[in-house]
Amino acid sequence: MKVEEKEHIMTEPKTIPEINKKALIEARNVNVFYGHFQALKDINISMNKNSVTAFIGPSGCGKSTFLRCFNRMNDYIDGYSIKGEIVIDQKKINWKNVVIEELRKEVGMVFQKPNPFPKTIFENVAYGLKIQGIKDKSFIEERVIKSIKDVALWDEVKDDLKKSALALSGGQQQRLCIARTLAVEPKIVLMDEPTSALDPISTASIEELMFELKQKYTIVIVTHNMQQAARISDKTAFFYMGEIIEYDDTKIIFTNPKQEKTQNYITGRFG
């Protein structure tokens, strides 16, 4: 089924929470279904600009599903439907008339496994710009260099921009993929377990990068690594069986969570 043919929205929520004007991302009474299975239940959350928000929770709790709602990645899944509203930068993004390409320019995504294209390092980063129809070579070059510098990869690849991206190490490939995402200057960067396939050194460099990136971008990360969530995020949301059990400052979640389920999960006593 083509994306544009699908019905995505739908019923107005019974109660509409007040708009949080500071929020860059806001979900209001979001319910997501895969056929008859309800993957997300009444999700209400807002995320501020230039912050890092971590989604944690056991497998199948709905955190990746929710992350993918922000750039409409779930639209391709048969049986998927969403109720409620997701508002990004004051715009409702799950209406039929939203141009998905425009949305994804604003909301970039980094996946679990580094997925560089079988092209040169330069072409990988320039890809998004070219897709957007930008032809100005000096502009593209400038943006590619800036993006590679932003992910602290420049010193490692500056002499090899014409080499295949596949020749890079896993950690370098992931940073390259982040550079590719940043090249189109999104407002939001979604990261779905971005370091789970990386060694501790590459993980540390990606985490350091996130600290830098949040000066310019708003980051939402799904992670199974509890310590990673604690280290890098400002706010943490704990998901369980499609619901947000607790959402608070990361320091509070990891020192004095209010909900017993959260405490059991983060201390490894779940089940």
Partner: peptide, 9 residues
């Protein structure tokens, strides 16, 4: 073990 919450306390 990087304890958190009640374990850390």
């Amino acid at each position: 073990y990087s304890p958190v919450a009640v374990d850390l306390r």
